[in-house]
Design a protein around this nucleic acid. Structure first.
Lengths: 203, 203
DNA sequence: ACGCGATGCGACGCTCCCGTATCGACGCTC
DNA sequence: GAGCGTCGATACGGGAGCGTCGCATCGCGT
């Protein structure tokens, strides 16, 4: 029920264009009214399809949202090795900043995160998606820096990720203050200093 | 319509206990179903009052929520001077952590922030509330540190606030990872280092 | 060429909530 | 003691969305 069906036997088939239209409509509805007010009827209206087309593909609103979220979250972001912690970090921050400033993402992400606080299934789905991206940051960016000798061994990866992603998320999504020119490099320097000052857990 | 009415002439009066019950019920409903699904009927049911009692006090769902949010956000938090940037910072982080871990707050805050992305009135109300608290951090904590010589003059207050509040918010509200014993002091040290490394905007 | 089956679509009954109005009961103020 | 305004409760018409069902259409395999 999650991926595209392909000619099971000798019969008609779910039309992929319609599935795609529903997915698109869901994203826009989610951004527009949020998960709470989300209605199948509105999605069908926006997608220009009948409600049946949706119910035939997914059993419930929750299943539909989880499916689309999972599909979007599984798009991996590559992390080239720039040769230094500062270079890697600035690149990551830039990519995260661009992602968070996407008009659809900047509305959908906080909405789903808020809903995750009351819906266990959404929570675990988002956790999975976030863990995948945090592993990129943790294992690649931090481990690389440790191997280069730029960071101490035994550094707490959770707190490190908090220090890297937290300020940017707060700034762009919560406070919604635009980033001025030159603030990102300064923020990068500050975070590098924070990471280097982060004592290992054993200390 | 926002504060308590007091005996206008020679007549009956809105009973404060009922107003308080509505406020309490609103908080619980908001935490339970979110702003999107919020319904006046459910609030009245939970509060054990008639819908009329609510409509007599507020004209709309939005007005009710804005009123209660403003009232809660106006509770000022004192910030004693511990004598050092690190001491002030750890105290602030501890208070913020406690606030964000409150079961009601941890559900209501992200929900309203998500809603603020599509509702201008909620956005400005929350901005006002946050600016008040950020001023405490900015003017007191940072200015004090500058006067002590612990931070450089001309430091960017916006980025500084991002560095202070962002990691904790991300950790507790977004990632929802519990803070282990000893992580808060380590986080404090790292943020101090970040603030000291934060170059002034003019640089 | 044909027929089967899945498809898209609108209609259906149902539930929930809105915002208003009305009612008798109660309590406070004068 | 009298009157006024608030109280909970209930009812109302209207709107919106739910999940299902019937129907004509279209595509595939024979």
């Amino acid at each position: 029920m999650s991926t595209e069906k392909r000619a099971p036997a000798g019969a008609a088939v779910l039309r992929g264009e319609i599935t795609a239209a529903i997915r698109r409509a869901l994203m826009h509805e989610l951004a527009g009214v949020g998960y709470g007010r989300l209605s199948i009827e509105a999605i069908a209206r926006r997608a220009g399809v009948g409600k049946t087309a949706i119910y035939r593909r997914w059993n419930s609103k929750l299943e539909l949202v989880l499916d689309v979220v999972t599909e979007v979250a599984n798009r991996r972001l590559p992390l080239p090795d720039t040769g230094s912690l500062r270079g890697d970090l600035e690149l990551v921050l830039l990519m995260v900043a661009q992602a968070l400033q996407h008009p659809l993402a900047s509305q959908i992400i906080p909405d789903l995160l808020a809903e995750a606080a009351r819906n266990e299934q959404i929570a675990v789905t988002l956790q999975r998606a976030m863990q995948a991206n945090q592993r990129v940051i943790g294992e690649l960016l931090i481990d690389r820096a440790v191997k280069r000798g730029e960071l101490a061994e035994g550094i707490d990866p959770d707190t490190a990720v908090d220090l890297i992603v937290g300020p940017l998320y707060w700034r762009l999504v919560i406070a919604r203050t635009p980033m001025n020119e030159g603030q990102l490099p300064r923020l990068t320097d500050a975070i590098v200093a924070a990471l280097q000052a982060l004592r290992p857990a054993a200390a």
